[in-house]
């Protein structure tokens, strides 16, 4: 494995922060080596400095994409941590449907949900499955489910909706597995009826995203933990701008907005917390 020097650590950590917002602890040199070593070798670089220079100047951005894919964590599961999904099913969606259903039956109910760090798509597909089960007359709704992630690789896998048995292992009850997935050998593919409900695209949360419009529910779980405090403050401030006035924000179960964004207040429902704008 190609060794990284202290100077290179600093350089590469800064570069990764610039392209992704992800802040990596420089004391964990093995993390850089295990995740970036093979990219360096593959592109004929003998040092990490060389890799950095190549990645920065290469017009196609291929190496930059590979670095982002390698460095971003994609550990995620269907219905990971039941709390937020129960919250969505039993409280947020019913409340939202009440609030958004127009007076005239001729009009459709608009609902927009965003999974801000969608990784390989399990969170957004879990949301789609809940919506499918909760709303019988779905044609009366105009539902937009958007998933975004910084990693091209993650976005591509999410769009395919194909998972291996390790990725399916936890979280998904057998009945949902049979109903919403097709098995082929050791892999499972989400059925078209669910696939058609969602859309994935690449997005760096450090850049402006007001262009996505306003959302009724935003899931932003376990991504801000990789950012520095000032970056987190900026992120949640932009999220507040992108959330409808009566919309809901859900963050990771061990995350907190105290000292990060005073525009949100936490509210408790059973064993979960969600945030609304003041």
């Amino acid at each position: 494995m190609l060794k990284i020097s202290p100077d290179e650590l600093k350089l590469v950590a800064q570069y990764i922060h610039d392209i992704s917002g992800i802040y990596l602890d420089q004391s964990k040199s093995y993390l850089f080596e295990t995740r970036l070593g093979s990219i360096a070798t593959e592109h004929g670089c003998n040092t990490y400095k060389e890799l950095y220079q190549k990645a920065k100047t290469e017009p196609s951005k291929t190496i930059e994409r590979k670095i982002i894919d390698a460095i971003s964590t994609n550990e995620t599961l269907f219905f990971r941590d039941k709390g937020p999904f129960e919250l969505l099913q039993h409280k947020l969606l019913p409340e939202l449907i009440d609030a958004r259903t127009p007076g005239s039956p001729a009009l459709k109910t608009n609902i927009k949900i965003w999974s801000a760090a969608s990784s390989t798509g399990q969170e957004l597909y879990s949301i789609a499955i809940i919506i499918k089960e909760l709303i019988p007359n779905i044609s009366k709704y105009n539902i937009k489910l958007l998933g975004t992630d910084i990693s091209d690789g993650a976005v591509a896998q999410a769009s395919r909706g194909k998972y291996n048995k390790f990725e399916m292992e936890r979280g998904l009850p057998g009945d949902k597995l049979q109903r919403y997935f097709t098995m082929f050998g050791d892999s499972w593919t989400i059925k078209d009826e669910i696939r058609a409900m969602v859309q994935f695209r690449k997005l760096n949360l450090m850049l402006p995203f007001a262009g996505l419009g306003k959302f009724d529910i935003i899931f932003c779980r376990n991504v801000a933990i990789y950012f520095t405090l000032p970056d987190r403050q900026k992120l949640f401030n932009k999220i507040a701008d992108s959330l409808a006035d009566d919309g809901y924000l859900i963050i990771g179960s061990t995350e907190s907005l105290t000292g990060i964004c005073p525009r949100f207040i936490p509210k408790r429902h059973l064993r979960s917390i969600f945030y609304q704008k003041k």
Partner: peptide, 27 residues
């Protein structure tokens, strides 16, 4: 992997409870 994720879940749910209580109390 299952053992590790089990351990992670346990730690995470204990931490979540503490953090949620603090979050509400602070608010």
């Amino acid at each position: 992997a299952q053992d590790l994720s089990q351990a992670m879940d346990t730690t995470e749910s204990a931490a979540a409870l503490t953090i949620q209580n603090l979050e509400i109390r602070t608010a």
